[in-house]
């Protein structure tokens, strides 16, 4: 009897797992910040793709960078009685009330990419990347690549005071700690833009003996690296060989540079935050397993060996 029971429940479970019909009646509301950057556009595209693949009915709301629009969207999701809500919060504060409303309606809320300052029992989980870890992966790559040789590093920071700039700097410095052969000789902000990345790199090159003194560049995002690569070329040096280039984000354009041998490595900030969120949600609906309060996305390292041309073609269509 026990065996039959077990078999029966296993079959039911398998049926749940295999049939897309079960997922089809899942309706999820997604409140996106807006279209502030190419990365966010890619996140929206991937969320829609993931929902379609899993047969989830996704209700999408664009908040145009305003929290009040997001709160409105959340309330309308609650009124519609969706099965779950994904939200990429535009700011960290002011969410308690609407999250409580969702909790009262027993609708699980999953935070994407950013977190909030509310008590953590008001949401199910947060899917974010670890910015410090990203910097760390970039730093480790550099440590391994120079393999003990002396190397002067210049750093292009993000916007001064922004959390990606602080954390990516911290993670990189942690990876370099104790490695006496590696030294960060100059560090300036490039405001996360190509123009400033290029301008600041030009001054680094002038200040460090025409660039002969620089062995590697670490940029807090790919756009600054792309600008800096042009500056290095204009100074008559070869980016990727004379000066190693490592950056973070993995936007399509850096793969073009890697394919041309002008950039060496990038750490991916994956725009696929919805995948792990839907995984957690499906597991919860299946047998009530609550996910951890923080799901860390993978910070994957790409180098020239990872067929950058192919990755570029894959990423190109995502709306970056």
């Amino acid at each position: 009897m026990k065996f039959v029971n077990a078999l029966a429940s296993a079959t039911v479970l398998a049926a749940c797992f295999l049939s897309p019909v079960n997922a089809a009646d899942l309706t999820v509301g997604f409140s996106q910040i807006g279209s502030e950057s190419g990365w966010r556009a890619a996140e929206t595209t991937l969320t829609k793709q993931q929902a379609e693949k899993r047969g989830i009915d996704l209700k999408f709301a664009d908040a145009q960078q305003k929290q009040e629009n997001q709160i409105k969207a959340l309330r309308s999701f609650i009124a519609q009685g969706v099965d779950a809500i994904l939200v990429a919060p535009v700011v960290a504060t002011g969410w308690d009330e609407v999250l409580q409303e969702a909790k009262d309606a027993e609708i699980p809320v999953i935070l994407l990419d950013r977190t909030v300052d509310s008590k953590d029992d008001l949401y199910m989980t947060a899917v974010t990347s670890d910015l410090v870890h990203e910097g760390n992966v970039a730093g480790k790559w550099l440590v391994d690549t120079v393999a003990g040789k002396p190397c002067n590093v210049v750093e292009l920071q993000g916007t001064t005071g922004s959390s990606p700039a602080i954390d990516r700097k911290k993670g990189f410095e942690e990876a370099l700690a104790g490695k006496d052969n590696l030294k960060i000789i100059r560090s300036q902000t490039g405001d996360f833009t190509r123009t400033k990345g290029k301008e600041v790199m030009e001054s680094f090159l002038k200040a460090e003996d025409g660039g002969k003194n620089i062995c590697a560049l670490y940029a807090h995002n790919d756009d600054m690296a792309v600008g800096a690569i042009q500056a290095i070329k204009e100074a008559g040096l070869k980016p990727g060989t004379d000066i190693l280039v490592v950056s973070i984000d993995a936007v399509p354009d850096i793969f073009q540079a890697m394919a041309a041998g002008e950039a060496n490595a990038t750490v991916e900030l994956t725009p696929n935050m919805a995948g792990p969120a839907f995984d957690a949600l499906e597991a919860f609906r299946k047998d009530g397993t609550l996910p951890k309060k923080w799901i860390q996305t993978e910070s994957k390292l790409y180098t020239q060996a990872d067929d950058p041309k192919k990755v570029y073609e894959e990423k190109k269509g995502l709306g970056y």
Binding site: D191, R194, T195, V226, D253
Partner: peptide
């Protein structure tokens, strides 16, 4: 000039 300099048009940051 700004676009030609970085070989691309950055609508968010050009001339900001």
């Amino acid at each position: 000039i700004a676009a030609a300099d970085i070989r691309g048009a950055d609508a968010n940051n050009a001339g900001l």
